[in-house]
Design a protein around this nucleic acid. Structure first.
Lengths: 400, 400
DNA sequence: GCTACTTTTTTCAGACTATAAAACAATCAT
DNA sequence: ATGATTGTTTTATAGTCTGAAAAAAGTAGC
């Protein structure tokens, strides 16, 4: 239930409010922060002085005068620390190192195309990459604010345990991960962290209520409510890919039938087109190029397959619309992005047709803005999000 | 986005915290409130004195000593004000008057079985009933804390506009309702307010994450997250009855096809049994008795129909499990209650089979506890909920 | 260069909060 | 009776935001 409040919570919350504004809308000025947050100038000054002293933000230069005293520019102290983002995708693990302004300083990829990856291998691969990248950059682990990890499946938030039936992870334990690197680790479902990235820097900027769907081989979703990621009781909220839209549809890799994935996933659509005999393993992207070309050329089988995709995806999205009533749906993922490029209008029409009038009439479909980068970027937002929401009470910043 | 905080918010929140505990777990004592909320004894005393002075709570007697000073009993000041709950159901409007302890003081029903009710008629009926009930009780409107209204369809919270396609209400305007009665009116979707009642007094007591489904002719749902009703961007969250589990299922009264309602609603199941030629209009409850009897007697057609119901409902519920990961699912509504009485085990098994292992393995299905009373009771919780969450800053209480 | 005005930022006093510690109150056990 | 125990209130203190006043740093006109 709800927790008690004390005066200290007020400061923590207002610190977070101010810090978030500097982070997402900065560089900015004190007066603008005051206007945006509703806090009095006195409080803004007060809090900002704390943040400056702690090295979380920095003053750099002035804005031109508007007839009076110049506004001092405050921005994130980019180089006060580093963050690491790692994303366990469908075919590779990507690890990037960023500064606090989320500028990419280093990037590595660990591919495992065409096979499953075990938990142990994933842990080792990430640890090795981070170690060597930091060594290359000549940086100590203590200068890293945190390591964000995006993984498939359901993440139990407190226990750091991952359940990803479709890749064979049953209760995979990630607790203590990052300990021997000396870096605090944060873990979340990849679709959720990717959604966070689009919410901060992409198509869902300044949107209070949005749903992002990520479609590749599988399908995932992230839900933004009141400007924040909605997690539900144990972070399983949004396991949309395995909600069912048919009692007896195609067989799914989760062991059940009728899942959304089996209708809108890339190879599902390819199989609809050319039948289950032709295997697309390892060359799904070519396949998708091919079907889209065939579709444009009027190939009847491709038409049928794409038409079926639009209808099933429209229906599956309309369920999210009825249940969450978002202002926007962002379509992403490598396959989702290609579909959106060609079919956004058709999809929008299908969603309108299937959803109830009121929520359906208000929702707008858009294509993801950040593309493939969003996943790693999103993972890196995990430590930063934690940093901001906690009110930045961390001593990992190098005070100048 | 998030709002700024000030010291006054601290008080408001802690007042709400204390008041909620007295309301839901009272009668109680100051020390117990302190233990439950985590607040210091000093703060509890301080806040409690305010609430006593304002007439929101009352001291009545003492608990037996446990080896030291006796604990003073504090409880809700039952007769400090009244609340009215009104529920627009599928066949009738029910209006009840309660005291603040939610003891029923008067009750009225306005039936409209077998036809639709217009918005204007509903408004008039409710107004008339409330007026005459208050007159009968000899109470002035100013002594009423508020009027809670549960309606079908989607309620836009701020604008007080209702969209209920299935009963023909398109943008029905309820703003200003209650004004000429001199009573503040609060309106919400009936499934949501009913869920609130079960969360406060019924099967979802002390449960942080629960989903309640209400099944009658149609189907609705209410979602409890972190102990509170989840509303989404404009209160449409939980429009489960018109999510779709088939592309080309039976025709729905909302004008589309494949809706959950068309598989699990009462007459849908009856039609499955005896075919669409036999009409059950006006005698659905008899029909349900009949099919359940036939099912127990082993009638093959009844078996098929009930079996289909279990599978479709299990699937539809599993989608909610995957999306919200509740600890409990409460099955209610007049038809849902009968199904639950007979088939809860089968339903639970079906949900487990269709949902992902992790969320599915944890969820428990239970039958609603409050029965048909829940709807009106839930409507009455709307003003009370508002009263509590606002920190009880209202001058409608008769100070003794 | 000087003055008047504007805009931004800081300082300061005031009003509220929660809390820890101490005091007070009321009861029980011996 | 007396001391221990439990519940409640009082008191002193530290932390919070805010409005008003002050200060800082410009611009514009002359």
């Amino acid at each position: 239930m709800a927790k008690k409040a004390s005066v200290k919570d007020v400061r923590r919350r207002n610190r977070a409010l101010i810090l978030r504004h500097v982070w997402l809308h900065g560089p900015t000025s004190r007066s603008e922060v005051g206007a945006a947050t509703g806090l009095s100038p006195a409080t803004v000054t007060n809090v900002m002085n704390e943040l400056l002293a702690e090295g979380a933000v920095r003053e750099e230069g002035f804005l031109d005068s508007e007839g009076g005293r110049r506004r001092a520019i405050v921005s994130v102290a980019h180089d006060a620390a580093l963050v690491v983002g790692a994303d366990v995708g469908e075919t590779q693990i990507a690890v990037d190192v960023f500064d606090l302004g989320l500028n990419r300083l280093a990037s590595r990829v660990y591919p495992f195309k065409g096979r499953r990856i075990e938990v142990g291998e994933a842990r080792t691969a990430i640890t090795d990459q981070v170690t060597s990248m930091l060594a290359e950059l000549g940086v100590d682990g203590r200068r890293v604010l945190g390591l964000g990890l995006g993984v498939p499946g359901i993440v139990e938030e407190d226990r750091q345990v991952v359940h990803a039936e479709v890749v064979g992870w049953h209760g995979a334990d990630f607790s203590g991960f990052g300990d021997h690197l000396g870096i605090p680790a944060y873990i979340d479902n990849g679709a959720k962290s990717t959604t966070q990235a689009e919410a901060w820097y992409g198509a869902a900027r300044d949107t209070d209520h949005a749903v992002m769907v990520l479609i590749g081989e599988g399908a995932g979703a992230g839900i933004i409510t009141d400007g924040r990621l909605y997690r539900g009781s144990s972070s399983s909220a949004g396991e949309w890919g395995h909600t069912k839209i048919s009692l007896d549809g195609p067989h799914c890799r989760c062991g059940r039938a009728g899942c959304v994935e089996t209708f809108v996933g890339a190879s599902a659509v390819l199989n609809q087109w050319r039948g289950p005999d032709e295997t697309w393993l390892g060359r799904e992207t070519e396949g998708v190029d091919a079907i889209l070309t065939a579709w444009r050329d009027g190939d009847p089988a491709a038409r049928r397959a794409i038409d079926g995709l639009v209808r099933h995806l429209g229906l599956a999205l309309s369920n999210l619309v009825n249940l969450y009533n978002p202002e926007k749906i962002i379509v992403g993922g490598w396959f989702g992005d290609r579909i959106a490029a060609e079919l956004l209008g058709d999809l929008q029409a299908a969603v309108r047709a299937y959803a109830l009038d009121q929520p359906g009439g208000e929702v707008v479909l858009v294509r993801s803005q950040l593309g493939p980068e969003a996943a790693v970027l999103g993972a890196a937002t995990l430590p930063i999000s934690q940093f901001i929401e906690s009110g930045a009470g961390v001593d990992r910043l190098t005070t100048p």
